[in-house]
Design a protein around this nucleic acid. Structure first.
Length: 217
DNA sequence: CTCCCGATAT
DNA sequence: ATATCAGGAG
């Protein structure tokens, strides 16, 4: 399949995704920016379902960044163990909360520049938290689903998440960045799956360069 | 590029 | 048995 105009190709994908998933939003449970930050950090290489299973206890035990910052790292590790990478995540969460308390007045920062200072936080996590907690549109969160679908749909040829994000930001209108990301992720989970994509049930298969083919791309 | 890492789907 | 899951750091 040949893509004539990349921009109109992207806009058609966006239009259909909006139609297919009109109310797509974040699937992680949270009540405030701090809780969202914790949930997104835990979601690395882990399903959101499992994150939502452990976060109630985590938020009960550590209701604030102060509580997390002052907790023994071993206690954090035990609560988040099922999410994987638990030693890294626990160490980063404790250090990030310490920084939030000592340098950001106890509040999760509202800017990309400040978010990136937090240990364990890069653009994907920052975009996600800034948009869903504060409504700040700072970029497009490129996770494993966004990466896979962007390549399959011919929206980027890159593997590097930062380069993929730049390609997508060129193609998608800024005010749509948030919902585009959620819709792509939703579509990636339910239809355009990593292992066995359901191309015959996909509403994009007539404009997808990878439809009914095997392999990543 | 490698390491961190548990749980589920295939 | 192996691939995969809302990644990030050294």
């Amino acid at each position: 399949m040949e893509i004539k105009d990349k921009k109109s190709h992207a806009l058609e994908i966006l239009r259909r995704l909006e139609e297919m998933y009109p109310h797509a939003k974040i699937a992680l449970n949270f009540n405030d920016p701090y809780q969202l930050l914790v949930a997104v950090v835990l979601s690395a290489q882990c399903t959101d379902k499992r994150v939502n299973e452990v976060t109630p206890k985590v938020f009960e035990r550590f209701p604030t960044p102060e509580a997390m910052a002052n907790a023994p790292v071993e206690e954090i590790e035990e609560l988040i163990r099922p999410t994987g990478f638990f030693r890294n995540k626990a160490k980063n969460l404790k250090a990030a909360c310490k920084m939030i308390v000592e340098e950001f007045g106890g509040e999760v920062p509202r800017t990309m520049e400040e978010m990136l200072k937090l240990p364990g936080v890069a653009r994907k996590t920052a975009n996600c938290v800034l948009y869903s907690a504060y409504g700040e549109i700072s970029g497009i969160a490129v996770d494993t689903h966004v990466k896979r679908l962007s390549k399959r749909l011919g929206l980027t040829k890159h593997d590097n998440p930062d380069k993929i994000e730049r390609d997508l930001m060129e193609l998608i209108p800024r005010e749509k960045w948030g919902e585009f990301s959620f819709a792509l992720i939703r579509h990636g989970r339910e239809v355009c799956k990593a292992r066995r994509p359901l191309c015959d049930k996909c509403g994009l298969n007539d404009i997808c360069p990878s439809a009914f083919k095997t392999g990543p791309k």
